[in-house]
Computed example of a mutant assay.
Amino acid sequence: MTMRWVAAVLFIVAASTDKLDGWMARTYDQVTELGKLMDPIADKLLIGATLVVASAFGEVYWWVTILMLVREIGITVMRFFVIDTGGRVIAASRAGKYKTLAQCVGLGLLLFPVWSLSPSSAGTPMWINVYYVVTFTVIYLSLILCLYSGGLYLYRVWRPASSDAATKA
Rank of each mutant, 00 (worst) to 15 (best):
A161P: 01
Q103M: 08
V52K: 02
T85K: 14
A54V: 05
P113F: 13
F136H: 15
G106D: 04
V6D: 10
W115H: 15
M126P: 04
L110C: 10
V9E: 06
W5Q: 07
S162I: 12
R26V: 15
A15Q: 10
D164F: 08
V53R: 14
Y98M: 14
L107W: 01
V77M: 07
A8D: 03
V52C: 08
K97M: 12
W63P: 00
W63V: 11
D164N: 11
I128G: 00
T50C: 09
E72R: 01
T32F: 11
F81P: 06
T2D: 13
P160S: 11
D39G: 04
L110N: 03
L67E: 00
L145D: 03
A49C: 09
M126N: 14
I83Q: 08
I75L: 06
W62A: 08
A165D: 02
V77Y: 05
W63C: 10
I144N: 06
V89R: 02
T32I: 03
F11D: 06
M3D: 15
T100N: 10
W63Q: 13
G48T: 01
A91K: 02
L10K: 09
L34G: 10
I41R: 02
S163A: 12
T124P: 00
K19S: 05
V138I: 12
E59M: 07
V9H: 06
C104N: 07
V138C: 06
Y148C: 03
W5M: 04
G150M: 04
Y132I: 02
I66K: 00
E33T: 08
A165T: 05
L145P: 00
A165G: 15
D164S: 01
T17N: 11
L143C: 04
T32W: 04
Y132W: 08
V64R: 01
F80R: 04
S121M: 03
T17M: 14
F57M: 15
Y61H: 13
